[in-house]
Design a protein around this nucleic acid. Structure first.
Length: 461
RNA sequence: GACCCUAUCGUCUAGCGGUUAGGACACCGCCCUUUCACGGCGGUAGCGCGGGUUCGAUUCCCGCUAGGGUCGCCA
């Protein structure tokens, strides 16, 4: 049997971190089993459905690197319809489409008719209801085991449920089952919030005369305080991670660790290894709280080992977002500057504050540090340092270091006494990249200009 | 109200009858160091409660409690 799994989000304009993890687990299982990962858009709720909302989902999955084998390819602002591709460009791929529920009305209509013909569905107040079995249903679940679902008190009064609304729109339970059936889905991997509803789905499958797929209900992601994570909660939106400067590979790694473990005390696990080891029965059964601190740490781990090229790729947009126009500087300068920042900060959004001094003409000085470092006795020291730097050639980290240390020796000082005011004069900050390296990158002209400016500003020339 | 799932440091987890209950994040010390980081060493901290079963329960069973989910003409 060829494994076919699907992620079936509703386009709400928002991709929940829990939904992202559901997508990830589906993707992991498909890749592990050599099966297909299908993306299906559950846009039956027309009111909430917009092409932009679909775009959020596609972009989110692409950012995480979860490529799907079947489903939408492109959703332009006016083409959400994969049956009428414009200019000959297909907007979906796969042989089981359409992959938008809004385009599958005819399929649902036929299936509802089938149930009616079998006497398993009937009209009720303009809606169509499914004749639900009165018996408890056993849900075989790969994660939680066999679950016997008894009827609740309300269901005992009327177990039947609506499958087509009085306005003619089919509801979730119906379309979900019909699509899984028609698309040949073999494993349904979804959030545990669907576990109770699965009895309805199994009954529907049986009504259509087919065996239901295998189920794997994965635990939910909760807030740090253990409450349900809803749309408004901090960290709930995947887009937030993209914007705050997380590397997608770190987010994916973190998500893998929520409810699954490599069991060998590792935290950083390459995705290909997760694919190899991942399996459904090993998924934990309890909910997990989202620990932003750990993701933050993991992001730092990923930054430290990523290539300078990848770092550059992610850092430049973060700097631009913070208002630093790196385009005004030669690419070699930007790359050299960023090289000195790599591994120092855990988030790309923190980079602007850390290395922004490279990309401004005049730095702002930390007032508290200025009061401490630009003291009367440091005036002559800074002048001596400036003179030593002015005479320097080549202007490299090694020569800068010896020049500073030699100047300190001549003044009978420890290097640190010169290091701190020099850093402050050239960056405006007390913390930053390695001093000698940042001076080299800044270059002789900028360094001397910044030293002069500090001397003028704090010592009146 | 009914039904379902779950329960190891604050958090993520390893454990699958006998362990000094292991790792990671966070936190606190010390070391390294030109700053900030990184790294190294050490530390605080955990089996929700009550019954069983067993020579022996974190581990198996039952109950309780707590948390989460579901019971819609939302998905």
């Amino acid at each position: 049997m060829i494994v076919r799994v699907r992620f079936a989000p509703s386009p709400t304009g928002f991709l929940h971190i829990g939904g992202a993890r559901t997508a990830l687990f589906n993707w992991l299982y498909a890749r592990h089993a050599g099966g297909a990962f299908i993306l299906r858009i559950e846009d039956t709720d027309v009111a909430r459905n917009t092409p932009e909302a679909v775009e959020v989902i596609l972009n989110g999955l692409r950012w995480l690197g979860l490529e799907w084998d079947e489903g939408p390819i492109e959703v332009g602002s006016s083409r959400c319809d994969d049956r009428t591709p414009q200019r000959g460009v297909p907007t979906s791929k796969g042989n089981y489409g359409p992959y938008f529920q809004s385009q599958r009305a005819e399929i649902y209509r036929k299936r509802v008719q089938e149930l009616k013909d079998k006497g398993l569905a009937y009209d009720h107040d303009g809606a169509v209801k499914f004749k639900m079995t009165r018996e408890p249903i056993v849900i075989p679940d790969l994660v939680v085991g066999n679950v016997t679902r008894e009827l609740t008190d309300r269901e005992r009064m009327d177990p039947d449920f609506v499958i087509v609304r009085s306005d003619g729109q089919p509801v979730f339970h119906l379309v979900n089952v019909v699509d899984d059936l028609e698309m040949g889905i073999t494993h349904v991997i979804r959030g545990e919030d669907h576990l109770s509803n699965t009895a309805k789905h199994i009954a529907l499958f049986r009504a259509f005369g087919v065996e239901p797929p295998k189920y794997a209900h994965i635990p939910l992601i909760l807030n740090q305080d253990g409450t349900k994570m809803s749309k408004r909660d901090r960290g709930a939106s995947l887009t937030g991670y993209l914007e705050e400067g997380y590397a997608p590979e770190a987010v994916v790694n973190y998500l893998c660790l929520l409810g699954w473990s490599p069991k060998d005390n590792r935290e950083v696990v390459p995705i290909q290894e997760v694919v190899r080891m991942f399996d459904l029965p090993q998924i934990l059964r309890h909910n997990a709280r989202f620990d932003l601190d750990k993701l933050h740490w993991l992001n730092g781990e990923y930054i430290r080992v990523m290539s300078n090229e990848r770092f550059y790729e992610l850092a430049v947009p973060a700097l631009k977002k913070a208002g630093f126009d790196t385009d005004k500087y030669p690419e070699a300068y930007v790359r050299a500057a960023l090289d000195t920042c790599k591994g120092k900060k855990r988030l790309f959004s923190e980079l602007a504050d850390y290395g922004g001094f490279y990309f401004v003409e005049e730095v702002d000085y930390d007032a508290e540090a200025a009061a401490k470092d630009f003291t009367a006795e440091n005036l002559e020291r800074l002048r001596r340092l400036r003179d030593a730097f002015a005479a320097l050639a080549p202007f490299g980290a090694a020569t800068l270091e010896s020049a500073l240390k030699e100047t300190a020796r001549q003044l009978g000082l420890k290097a640190g006494v010169l290091v701190h005011p020099a850093r402050l004069a050239c960056t405006g900050k007390t913390a930053g990249p390695s001093l000698y390296h940042l001076l080299e990158v800044l270059g002789k002209e900028r360094v001397l200009a910044r030293l002069e400016r500090a001397l003028a500003k704090f010592y009146g020339g």
